[in-house]
C-alpha cells in the first residue's frame, strides 16, 4: 500500500483540519460526559449535599455509603449473575440467528427474498400485544426462566436489516471462487462474510448486548421468582420513587438519600457496558481483509 507524497500545502491544510476537528469533537464529547460525571459525583456525595442540590460535577462530602448500601444486598450479586447470563448467552444466540438469516437475505435473486424480509419488517410495526405474547411464552414453557427474557426478542429485525445491508455491500468475487471450490453456504458465511464484516458484527453484537443488559420489561412480565431478577429490575425497584412512605424514611435514616442511591445504581449498571466497549472498538480497524479480497 503505497501512497504518493502529498504536497506541502495539502499537509498544512490537513493538519489545520485535524486540529480543528479534534478541538470541536473534544468539546462536544466533554459536554456529553457531563451528565455522567454529574451522576458519579452525586453517587459519591454526602446525602445532605445531594438533597440540597449542591453537587454538580465534583462530589461534596465524599463518602461511599450509597455504594455500600447497593452492594450490601445479596440480591445485587444474584441479579448481576442473571444479567450476565442473559447478555452473554442472548447475544450469542441473537448473533447466530441474525447472521444465518442475513446471508440468504442478502443473496440477490434468491426467490421470495423480499417476501421474507417483509415478514421481518412487519413485526417492527405490528404486535399482538402483551397478553397473547405472554400466553405464548407460557405455552412454550419459558415462564419463570431466563430464556423468556432471551428468546422472544432474540431476533431484532432492525439489526437483521443492517447486517444484511453490510453483506450485500461485500464483493462477490471471492464468494464465487469459493463456490467453485465447492464450499457450502454455511462455510462461505463463516469463512468469508463474517471475517469481512467484523466492524459491523461488533457493532450489532453491541446493540444486542446492550439491549439484553438493559432488558427490563420481559423480566417484569415473565419472571416472578425473585432469584431470577436481572440487575436492571432489581436496581430500579430498589431506588424507585414511589415506595411506601415508611420505606423511604427507613432509607433516609440509614443515611442514604434515594437520590444518591439512584445515582450509585446507575453507575453500577452503566460501568460494565463501558468496560466492554474498548473490546468492541478493537474491531473498528480499517481494512483487515478488504485489501486482500480485491483483485
Amino acid at each position: 500500500m503505497q501512497t504518493q507524497k502529498p504536497g506541502i500545502k495539502a499537509v498544512r491544510s490537513d493538519s489545520v483540519f485535524q486540529l480543528l476537528n479534534a478541538a470541536f469533537l473534544s468539546l462536544i464529547s466533554v459536554s456529553m460526559l457531563l451528565p455522567f460525571i454529574h451522576i458519579a459525583a452525586k453517587s459519591l456525595s454526602d446525602q445532605s449535599h445531594v438533597v440540597a442540590k449542591d453537587v454538580w460535577l465534583w462530589p461534596k462530602g465524599l463518602n461511599f455509603s450509597s455504594y455500600d448500601f447497593v452492594l450490601s444486598y445479596k440480591q445485587f450479586y444474584v441479579s448481576f449473575g442473571n444479567s450476565l447470563f442473559i447478555t452473554v448467552v442472548g447475544t450469542l444466540i441473537s448473533m447466530a440467528v441474525t447472521l444465518l438469516a442475513a446471508y440468504p437475505l442478502s443473496r440477490n435473486g434468491l426467490p421470495y427474498r423480499r417476501l421474507m424480509m417483509l415478514i421481518f419488517v412487519i413485526t417492527m410495526f405490528f404486535s399482538g400485544g402483551l397478553i397473547p405474547t405472554y400466553l405464548i411464552v407460557k405455552d412454550v414453557g419459558l415462564l419463570n426462566s431466563l430464556w423468556s427474557v432471551i428468546l422472544p426478542g432474540a431476533l431484532a429485525p432492525f439489526n437483521l436489516i443492517l447486517i444484511r445491508n453490510f453483506f450485500s455491500g461485500l464483493p462477490e468475487a471471492m464468494e464465487e471462487s469459493a463456490r467453485m471450490d465447492g464450499a457450502s453456504s454455511l462455510r462461505i458465511l463463516a469463512q468469508i462474510y463474517v471475517p469481512l464484516s467484523m466492524p459491523a458484527i461488533a457493532t450489532i453484537s453491541m446493540f444486542y448486548a446492550v439491549g439484553y443488559w438493559n432488558s427490563f420489561f420481559q423480566a417484569m412480565m415473565y419472571l416472578t421468582d425473585r432469584s431470577l431478577m436481572p440487575l436492571q429490575v432489581f436496581l430500579l425497584q430498589l431506588v424507585s420513587n414511589d415506595k411506601p412512605a415508611d420505606m423511604v424514611v427507613n432509607d433516609v435514616l440509614s443515611g442514604v438519600t434515594p437520590e444518591s442511591m439512584r445515582a450509585a445504581a446507575i453507575i453500577c449498571v452503566v460501568l460494565p457496558i463501558l468496560c466492554v466497549y474498548p473490546f468492541i472498538q478493537r474491531y473498528f480497524v480499517k481494512g483487515i481483509m478488504l485489501g486482500a479480497v480485491k483483485g
Binding site: 450469542l92 444466540i93 447466530a96 440467528v97 447472521l99 444465518l100 407460557k138 405455552d139 412454550v140 414453557g141 419459558l142 428468546l151 454455511l186 463463516a190
Partner: peptide
C-alpha cells in the same frame, strides 16, 4: 456456535409444539 444456535432453535420448536 452456529450449530449450537440451530440446536437451540430446534429444541424450542419442539417445546412449542408440546406446549400447544
Amino acid at each position: 456456535r452456529t450449530a449450537v444456535g440451530i440446536g437451540v432453535m430446534v429444541f424450542m420448536l419442539l417445546a412449542a409444539g408440546c406446549g400447544g
